[in-house]
């Protein structure tokens, strides 16, 4: 389950991105005053890692997170739901989707989401596998929750230039997000790894779309689960 096994779907999209963009992520432009890496560095690894760019000082991981939040907010607003960022030290809920009450307050139904973003999707029989940190896995499993929790994984092109496409006609956010529920899943053996991760399978059918969100919220308001 290495990130090197690039999936066909991802390949398709990335290729589409490459066609439209002159800049190829596999060959980053050398920066001014830097003719190349020192010989003793791992060139393969360097080529995979993104060079710091003019990103307003934002770390690439932070950038991915913010982009995925914006992506999900766009979907939620189109579906007519509010998105709030929990104001509490709880790192397993990134966003809460809810209906709107008076003066912008929130009301039921509520749906908590752990949001992940990756540029390296892994496929398994057409579905996706995401290697979720064990802590997040454990926080998403419990049944004793007032509001249900889901995992949302947003996939973005590797090249940040391909994340959005904008014309005077449209704004395209790339690529998409899938969701899954780990409610009631069994314990995962801890193992010896320092930062253990759990491979989580996300069905390709569970695209996190406007209609999917509406359906989830409808099920919750009927007393069901996501």
């Amino acid at each position: 389950m290495k990130s090197g096994t690039r999936c066909s779907l991802a390949g398709l999209d990335v290729r589409r991105g490459c066609v439209r963009n002159a800049h190829n992520p596999a060959h980053p432009k050398p920066t001014k005053g830097n003719s190349g890496p020192p010989a003793n560095l791992n060139l393969k690894r360097l080529s995979r890692e993104r060079k710091p760019r003019q990103t307003g000082g934002m770390h690439p991981n932070e950038q991915k997170q913010q982009f995925s939040f914006a992506y999900l907010r766009a979907i939620a607003s189109a579906a007519g739901y509010a998105v709030t960022r929990p104001d509490i030290d709880d790192d397993s809920v990134d966003l809460t989707f809810s209906a709107r009450g008076g003066d912008g307050t929130i009301r039921s139904p509520r749906l908590d989401a752990q949001v992940k973003c990756t540029a390296d999707p892994v496929t398994e029989g057409g579905d996706f596998t995401f290697r979720l940190p064990l802590k997040n896995y454990d926080d998403l499993r419990p049944l004793e929750l007032q509001a249900p929790r889901i995992l949302i994984v947003t996939y973005v092109p590797r090249n940040q230039d391909d994340w959005i496409r904008q014309t005077d006609q449209e704004l395209v956010l790339r690529r998409c997000a899938y969701w899954g529920s780990l409610r009631g899943q069994p314990d995962h053996p801890v193992g010896a790894a320092r930062n253990p991760r759990v491979p989580v399978l996300l069905s390709r059918e569970r695209l996190f779309s406007r209609s999917a969100l509406r359906q989830i919220m409808h099920r919750l308001s009927e007393g069901g689960v996501p």
Binding site: T84, P86, D87, I88, D90, V93, T96, G101, G102, D103, G104, T105, I106, R110, D112, D139, P142, E144, L145, Q146, A147, R149
Partner: peptide, 18 residues
């Protein structure tokens, strides 16, 4: 409940506004 603190912050925020 696992999400008790989270739900309480929501409640407090709504009370603050209301």
């Amino acid at each position: 409940l696992r999400d008790y603190p989270l739900r309480i912050t929501e409640l407090l925020h709504t009370l603050e506004v209301a």
